[in-house]
């Protein structure tokens, strides 16, 4: 007799892990299914209506080009992705540090919070040429700075909000224990802020890739994804351009996925409901 259910005496950890894997599948499953459906519909529509590749190539054509051009695509994603990653890390860390300082001094918080929100609304296209001017346009820092700026402000705002959103009762508990300020920070404020910080990181991961590609269009490396797309469009290689976009998509997904994974690992209490 075979049975697939766990024996009743199975250790709690096993059950937990299984339900964890199950819930992860439940989360990703619908997204993957939807993506597949869209791709199939896309393929059928393009073929069925005979849409010309100039307007919209089929996903299968894009995939073929993707595989054929893989080395060049990898270089393009690497060039752009490097700036995105670098800017993501620098902007994220800077946003958290400045946010932490602001949470410590009220005048700084009151000054920075509205400014952070306002600056967060600046379109990156406006800053890209400026950074190109400041740094050598052939330095990775030129594009990384654009990215860092885009990631910085959401992180700043969320860190300030997160660090100051501690429960009053928790504050009183720490006060009743006469906990020194640095312990209040590390043991109460930082853990409280983590969901906010990860929120900013998730937004930042998406923005970082967009910012890096937009910055590519304002000069910089010839091997970059943005430059690559521009060139391919000029030579009417639309399928190639789409393949580059697809490669960027995958990179963005990987970055976002890493953040989500880190969030699940570092804030496991969020799952307890």
């Amino acid at each position: 007799m075979t049975t697939t259910t766990a024996p009743p005496a199975a250790p709690v950890a096993t059950i937990r892990r299984r339900s964890g894997a199950q819930s992860a599948f439940m989360r990703i499953g619908p997204a993957v299914a939807t993506a597949l459906l869209v791709l199939i519909a896309w393929e059928l529509v393009v073929r069925g209506f005979g849409i010309r590749p100039i307007f919209l190539p089929t996903p299968s054509a894009i995939a073929t080009t993707f595989v054929a051009e893989l080395p060049r695509l990898l270089l393009a994603v690497w060039t752009t992705g490097r700036a995105a990653l670098l800017g993501f890390v620098v902007g994220g860390v800077a946003g958290f540090v400045v946010g932490a300082l602001a949470a410590r001094w009220q005048w700084m918080r009151e000054g920075l919070l509205p400014m952070g929100v306002a600056f967060g609304a600046i379109p990156i296209v406006a800053t890209a040429p400026i950074f190109n001017l400041w740094f050598s346009s052939l330095s990775v820092w030129s594009n990384a700075s654009v990215v860092a700026l885009v990631v910085f402000f959401p992180m700043l705002v969320n860190t300030i909000t997160g660090l100051s959103s501690t429960d009053t009762a928790h504050d009183e508990l720490m006060e009743s224990l006469a906990a020194p300020r640095h312990m209040v920070f590390t043991k109460l404020m930082v853990p409280t802020s983590l969901p906010f910080v990860f929120g900013a990181l998730r937004v930042g991961a998406a923005l970082a890739v967009i910012a890096a590609v937009v910055a590519d269009f304002f000069g910089g490396f010839r091997s970059s994804a943005g430059f690559f797309i521009k060139t391919l469009m000029a030579t009417a290689d639309y399928t190639g351009a789409w393949a580059t976009v697809a490669a960027l998509c995958l990179f963005g997904l990987a970055l976002y996925g890493s953040v989500a994974l880190a969030e699940r690992t570092l804030t496991p209490w969020g799952d307890d409901g």
């Binding site: 009762a169 508990l173 109460l188 853990p191 804030t267």
Partner: peptide, 13 residues
């Protein structure tokens, strides 16, 4: 002082 409040005020993390 050991304080116990109306709510348990535990750290959920």
């Amino acid at each position: 002082y050991g304080m116990v409040f109306q709510k348990p005020t535990l750290f959920n993390w």
